[in-house]
Write a protein that binds this DNA or RNA. Structure first.
Lengths: 225, 225
DNA sequence: ATTTGTTGTTAAAATATGTCAATATATCTG
DNA sequence: CAGATATATTGACATATTTTAACAACAAAT
């Protein structure tokens, strides 16, 4: 695995721990940025495209939980939470908010590495982050293109956001409301239109969609094969 | 989420723990089978298509690690390992062998449930489909389609709900009242109409139904072969 | 500056679905 | 068998929902 492609953001108000983690991960071949609180983290997230966040829950200002919740609403960046030891309930709380994993402090660096590799593997396996396929359509969400039958079509950021979320849960029905939040499109009809346009890009026969289907009365669902 | 479609195999030589887990998961809506050792587990795996394994590492005979390694070589069934508390190295070992997650004993049942849901979300959704057959008709309740003699017909959500319930109990007579509740159709005649439409989708000769039959005075029955 | 393309919105057209009614068919009872 | 009752079928309808096409604002390109 080409680890050196992965950019990780470590967020912890404790400088000592933060730098320890940073140093360890750099040694393991990752690109590492750090932040000391939620606001700083958000600034960096807006600038860089991180592949993973390592997030302490106990921080002054916005807590790791709150940040997790906020971030997971708009993007599907993987998050590992660092919690105080033994706080089972809190850990569960984190997972419910959308965190991908957690680690109780103190932890073995090796264990953190395994969690990171696991999550990266899982994401690649799910084809969420990089390249993926829907049927015979080849998506490259980084380049924001879809290749279908030799033809390359561009997608816009709304479409990308929606695809990202729907690809993370193939088979899940997404209500128009959800899709609206994801894409920041406010009008219901507009969402329908976006779906129609998306179908023209991923479906061989857009009028009889096999992958991006309507669930009357509920919303839309994506199948990947 | 329609959890009740997920079939989990719990493998532990300690009957007490095994049954505790089983009971808990059944309450949560899963279908649960158990085995007391690796051999028994493998026998059942050959028969049923489990969606997930919960596997104790410490067992007489083949250990959970060895079983994990063996199984992961031939199939990619998700596995959660149960390890003795604090054995960080061993846990890591398990993950390296391909396990999807682990839990240290003793654990909170709620935590196990979260791990399971997490894994199901990540791994299974895209592979699982509520596929079944009625006679020669091939149903895909997820995609809401029925394929009969090469022709693909769509069903709506009411029809899906009714089929789901009736498929769960082939041979059971469903009164119009029940069907009405299931499908949220209030008028008796409307139910008849729905049955008629459904027959056109699953029966080769809808006028002489073999599978979706009327029980005069009582309701309808579904046979699957 | 003009053209070309993109994107969210809107309104009209098309489709799906539960209901109803009129008629046909099946099943039971005596 | 006749009559009574239950169920089936079909088409029409109203309503809700979805799709399509046209539009306007804006951005990008020439």
């Amino acid at each position: 695995m080409e680890k050196n492609k992965y950019h990780i953001l470590v967020v912890d108000d404790d400088d000592k721990i933060k730098n320890l983690i940073k140093q360890f991960l750099i040694e393991k071949g990752f690109i590492v940025s750090t932040a000391s609180n939620a606001n700083e983290a958000k600034e960096k997230i807006d600038i860089f495209e991180f592949n993973l966040l390592v997030l302490d829950v106990m921080m002054p200002g916005q807590s790791g939980y709150e940040l997790t919740k906020e971030l997971k609403q708009s993007r599907n960046i993987p998050i590992i939470l660092l919690t105080a030891k033994g706080e089972v309930e809190n850990r569960i709380h984190g997972l419910e908010l959308g965190a991908d994993d957690y680690l109780g402090k103190p932890f073995e660096p090796k264990e953190l590495l395994l969690r990171i590799n696991n999550i990266i593997k899982a994401n690649i396996k799910q084809n969420i982050s990089l390249k993926s396929k829907i049927g015979i359509a080849e998506l490259d969400l980084n380049r924001m293109t879809i290749k279908l039958n030799q033809k390359i079509k561009k997608i816009n950021s709304s479409e990308k956001k929606v695809l990202l979320k729907m690809l993370a849960s193939p088979g899940k029905i997404f209500s128009r409301n959800e899709i609206g939040k994801i894409s920041e499109i406010s009008q219901e009809r507009s969402i329908d239109v976006m779906i129609t346009r998306l179908r023209k890009k991923i479906e061989e026969d857009p009028k009889n969609p096999k992958f991006l289907q309507t669930v009357r009365g509920s919303g839309y669902v994506l199948w990947i094969k």
